[in-house]
Design a protein around this nucleic acid. Structure first.
Lengths: 138, 138
DNA sequence: TCGCAATTACAATTGAGTTGCAATTAAATT
DNA sequence: AATTTAATTGCAACTCAATTGTAATTGCGA
């Protein structure tokens, strides 16, 4: 029936209306959404703030979502690609308007020569670029 | 007289006891401090929380401090190197221990093909990598 | 020394995120 | 299909970082 119901059930979580609604809202958009943006989008369905928070965290723990912090002190969530769960990609944040874009992985390359510098860089799991987006550059 | 007084005055801001105390506290330590850590350090001088916040932000705007969020939803502040104010470099943050390393600029390359994807990437001013550092990787 | 805009101190407020708990409900069991 | 029970929801209260309003104070230029 519902594609999301199966997705949720597969993780062991119960399939509930709030969870399906959250997945639906996140799947409709190509950028990570904050909790408050989601609450706005789900206003019509009149969902409880705390329930959405708990669901976002639970589904993140279950591997359905990924959670990023782009430096504005709010968590943003996006649906994980189910075919390729470990495919994470760089994000670009506009420091003016706060917009978050997703970049192709290929566009950012990190080379780690174990250089003279005394850094302790290990496994990189998240790449975040900040600056002014094209709209805010003028 | 006071080395910090001159530093503050040079920016056009007034030199006040809270500002000097904040600069002194930040200069004594080699890592970025959060607001609450600063309040603790300045407890003896019994400074107002809001005053410290405003001073941290004002001095950041004035170019004396830099403000970073390494993903724990609190701002951290550090004194800017006055000789080389514009030297920015990629940072690596360990999501386990919270340690921050500075990387050589050459180690991260961003190529921006104006691709099919509808991102609005413009001028990049800050690069942040997250993951587990070598110490936390085991 | 004087005048005044910048700054401070205090209190109230915002906003993200969390927690406790009674009522509800998904779904496994019978 | 009805029963059962643990997972989940809904609501309210709460924590904590950070911001804001404002009257009183103060740095510093004139």
């Amino acid at each position: 029936m519902n594609e999301f119901k199966a997705l949720i059930r597969k993780t062991g979580l119960r399939s509930t209306p709030p969870r399906i609604a959250v997945l639906q809202a996140l799947s409709k958009i190509s950028m990570p959404l904050s909790h408050s943006e989601l609450v706005d989008k789900l206003a019509a369905q009149d969902m409880d703030r705390a329930t959405i928070f708990r669901n976002l965290n639970d589904m993140t723990d279950a591997g359905l979502l990924s959670r990023i912090d782009v430096g504005d002190h709010t968590w943003r969530f996006e649906i994980k690609n189910q075919e390729n769960k470990n495919a994470s990609h760089p994000h670009f944040v506009c420091t003016d308007c706060g917009d978050v874009s997703c970049l192709p992985t290929a566009n950012v390359q990190v080379s780690h020569y174990p250089s003279a510098s005394n850094n302790k860089v290990g496994n990189i799991s998240e790449i975040l670029l900040k600056g002014h987006c094209e709209d805010c550059e003028n």
